[in-house]
Design a binder for these strands. Structure first.
Lengths: 108, 108
DNA sequence: TGCGAATATGCTAATGTGATCATAACGGGC
DNA sequence: GCCCGTTATGATCACATTAGCATATTCGCA
């Protein structure tokens, strides 16, 4: 084992690396939520949301159960919230920036 | 503003979503490190490492300074370590899994 | 000035990701 | 059983990411 669990960690971070999936995780952190509620909250294509949820399911970050005709999602890993919080904090620190790539050498 | 800073957050998480870049961040969390040391530690193509560092630079997560003929990298955002720790913790919880996609409905 | 070490950049091929559209599958009520 | 609402899946297209290779750039030094 040369990669420890770093690979899994990278997969996890990538799974969280999309606006829609972050929002989904945020919602699920508050309470279990059905597909339709997420869709109306996020206002995106039905298929698109379904695919993002599939990503999260594949990573075992959420599970789903049927309630009649609708599907209710639930977080399986309660520690995801902590990751998002840490990321939020880091963003607040790092400031706006995003596309620059010039002055990477401190001015002096 | 409907996307708050979630987009930036997603970008950040994606920037961390690669084994090599995670390792780089881990090294830089300990101490500033020159390119060559990272390369020999990671044992990957020179160009590949350079490109990963470029990603981190673009995101303003690291900066570089020249020391003679070599380049020394430094973390600009000290809170990245916290994100990685949170991710590590989450992985430890979530267990192995990775490719399953079947029994997403709890057995009953 | 010319050379060599260290690093960056450009190009390309392979692969992955995300959005959209169409369609399938499932559950409930009639 | 049939129709409808809800969600999942498959196909496709555009675009991003990554690795590898070649080449450029920069700096120190003889």
């Amino acid at each position: 084992m040369g990669s420890r669990s770093v690979d899994r960690e990278a997969d996890l971070l990538r799974a969280l690396g999309h606006t829609t999936r972050i929002r989904v995780i945020e919602m699920l952190t508050e309470r279990d939520t059905c597909f339709c509620d997420m869709q109306s909250a996020l206002k995106i294509e039905q298929a698109t949301l379904s695919q993002h949820l599939q990503v999260l399911r594949r990573m075992r970050l959420v599970t789903s159960r049927k309630a009649g005709t609708q599907t209710i999602y639930r977080l399986t890993n309660l520690r995801l919230g902590a990751i998002l919080q840490a990321a939020t904090a880091a963003c607040a620190t790092g400031e706006p920036a995003a596309e620059a790539e010039d002055l990477q050498l401190e001015p002096n």
